[in-house]
């Protein structure tokens, strides 16, 4: 087990290096001069002299590889530079916006699990029955309904008409309900169907027949035998979605004015806030990779076959 984790951790090093390289190069390939962007963001007219002076100050006159080495060296120490826009440390800004996103992500994930698992299970057990048909409809609606529209519907009915929840912003627990509901809704359809398919597949496995032939109770077969094995693909997907959500959900955050990573990222792109864009990209990449690592570890707990392959 320990060996498995160590192996996965070592494999992260080249991936993280790759992420940093791509993040850095990508931004330098995009048209536009960071120096000009900086001046614009600071409301200084970008004259030739001003630009030239700033390029020296920001180190943009150095060769690209030197810039990269310098940037990476600082990034490793969590110094991602200073935002052109707010003139604050990029790391501090990210931390400030990351926590709301974490909150939203966790709330949504809990909702996804709590809602998808029972629906998926029930529709697998009652395959073809009315419950299954209903869950199919819910799944279609969930997957095809755009988040911004569903968000507005919730706001209109639950906040404006019924006055149950606050409309916008972040603060109390009640503020969290609508955004996380909106965010999780799109995923619920996917995971319901995924679990259903996975369970149906496992219900036909010989081990289910053997379990029945041993006289085990139906409930025990479903909960201990079928469900555990069926959760594997769901977990993989959920881990990826988790990473996705953590790196910011622009639409939901915009609809509910949620001050998260998505907002920060979009604002920085619109303002060509280069250090912030780089910082966000790198941070999201790392978060995503770490999420996948956690999923792999969780996966190996659920599926002993993976654990033992690692030991061999």
């Amino acid at each position: 087990m320990g060996w498995f984790i160590v192996k996965r951790l070592t494999s992260l090093i080249p991936i993280l290096f790759g992420i940093s390289l791509i993040t850095f190069i990508l931004l330098h390939l995009t048209p536009g001069d960071p120096a000009i962007a900086y001046l614009r963001a600071s409301h200084i007219p970008p004259t030739d002299e001003a630009v030239a002076a700033l390029r020296v100050e920001l180190g943009l006159d150095k060769p690209l590889y030197a810039q990269y080495v310098e940037w990476l060296g600082k990034a490793v120490q969590l110094d991602l530079g200073m935002s052109y826009l707010s003139k604050k440390s990029v790391w501090d800004e990210i931390m400030l916006h990351f926590f709301p996103t974490v909150q939203l992500t966790f709330a949504s994930c809990i909702l996804i699990v709590v809602i998808s698992l029972p629906i998926g299970m029930i529709s697998a057990i009652f395959k073809g029955k009315l419950v299954d048909q209903l869950s199919r409809i819910i799944a279609f609606v969930s997957v095809s309904m755009p988040a911004f529209w569903f968000g507005f519907l919730l706001i209109y009915f639950l906040s404006v008409k019924l006055d149950l929840f606050p409309v916008l912003g972040r603060g109390t627990f009640a503020h969290l309900v609508l955004p996380s509901l909106t965010l999780s809704f799109a995923y619920i359809g996917t995971y319901t169907r995924l679990l259903r398919a996975s369970m149906l597949e496992n219900l036909n496995e010989p081990f289910v027949m053997y379990a029945r032939a041993r006289g085990l109770r139906g409930r025990l077969i479903v909960s201990r035998h079928v469900l555990k094995k069926s959760l594997l693909p769901v977990l993989t997907g959920l881990g990826m979605s988790f990473g996705n959500m953590l790196s910011g959900v622009v639409i939901v955050e915009t609809v509910f004015a949620w001050p998260g990573m998505g907002q920060l990222f979009v604002t920085s792109i619109l303002n060509r806030d280069y250090p912030m864009i780089q910082g966000c990209l790198l941070f999201m990449g790392v978060i995503f990779v770490v999420c996948n690592l956690l999923v792999d570890i969780a996966y190996s707990f659920l599926d002993p076959r993976i654990r033992w392959e690692g030991e061999k």
């Binding site: 496995e205 010989p206 081990f207 027949m209 053997y210 555990k228 094995k229 599926d303 002993p304 076959r305």
Partner: peptide, 9 residues
């Protein structure tokens, strides 16, 4: 080989 559930001891 297939009669036992692979994720259970």
């Amino acid at each position: 080989m297939t009669a036992f559930n692979p994720v259970r001891t």
